[in-house]
Design a protein around this nucleic acid. Structure first.
Lengths: 165, 165
DNA sequence: CTGCCTGCAAAATCTTTGCATAATT
DNA sequence: AATTATGCAAAGATTTTGCAGGCAG
């Protein structure tokens, strides 16, 4: 198959979560959830584009409203990987934090165990419970160290490199 | 004195850094740097307000251009503490990362040593060099755990709680 | 003087909201 | 049938950019 995340229990679970809170199941909501699951790291703009390939007439405001709803239902979560646009992830994908290279824009996913020692320290010393899924660490990746750092990060959301750890 | 950061070597160092790269020293640039040093965590909007109390006629576009320049000169750095507005910090203040409570909005500063173990791991396993000053960890603070989490984070930039560690 | 900077205004992004209509339950 | 959800368009909020005049060096 062509998509990153296969655990698209989508519809059934979605309907269940929606109805439990008095919300309705609509084609738009199914499509948005599917798009987030398939895209992996999706900006609202990317979700809109993806959804429009399957159905027409869908509006950006619906994307925003739906993403907010899905996040409330804990079916998706978002993280800030750059200046402006947040990116959404499916809750059915494995949890991970992000490393973002400031020079080339590359995004590296890291599994929770890498963050856990820090999380433990924050819980112990600050009574603070971090949300690892929302964590983004900015810095320079292996390929970009020592380079004269361009004024701005290059174009596009850049490739995502899931860590194998 | 009434302001957080006293190490306002400001003007001299600013002039030096500017001239070294062919930039000019202007009243606006001095005022913006001072404001960032005095405010501690400053959004562009807050900087504008602060600067306008000392001089008039200053425009928001100058704030943005100046903050960008000061960051290039490494005299300030920014972090994303919330949804939209970035906050700027003086480089003359002690380095620190941020913990942001999603429920009450409280901001807790943590010193680099707390983050260092994670930084070491990322360098060793991912050849990734994190920028600790830019690091923000979202989660729930001691006071807010177990609470029914409001739909939205409460008003205002909220108080900043420098860690004593 | 020469050319960098600033203020102003318009534009560009990105997101939210009001409202009438369409769709779900 | 009762309400919720959507599409559309306009409004907001934030940041960027083009220009002509002003100021630093």
């Amino acid at each position: 198959m062509a998509h990153p995340h296969e655990s698209t229990r989508g519809a059934p679970e979605l309907q269940e979560e929606l109805r439990a809170r008095g919300y309705r199941l609509t084609p738009q909501r199914q499509l948005v959830l599917e798009a987030v699951e398939e895209l992996g790291h999706a900006t609202p703009e990317a979700v809109l584009t993806a959804v429009r390939q399957k159905a027409r007439g869908i509006n950006m405001s619906t994307i925003y409203r739906t993403l907010e709803l899905l996040e409330e239902l804990q079916l998706v979560s978002h993280a800030h990987l750059g200046h402006g646009a947040p990116t959404y992830h499916s809750a059915s994908a494995p949890d991970h934090a992000h490393l973002v290279c400031r020079t080339c824009g590359r995004i590296i996913e890291v599994p929770p165990p890498v963050i856990e020692p820090l999380a433990r320290t924050l819980r112990a010393e600050y009574s603070f419970r971090p949300d690892v899924r929302h964590l983004t660490v900015f810095g320079d990746c292996a390929d970009c160290q020592g380079h004269p750092r361009p004024a701005k990060v290059p174009a596009g959301p850049a490739e995502v490199v899931p860590s194998e750890a």
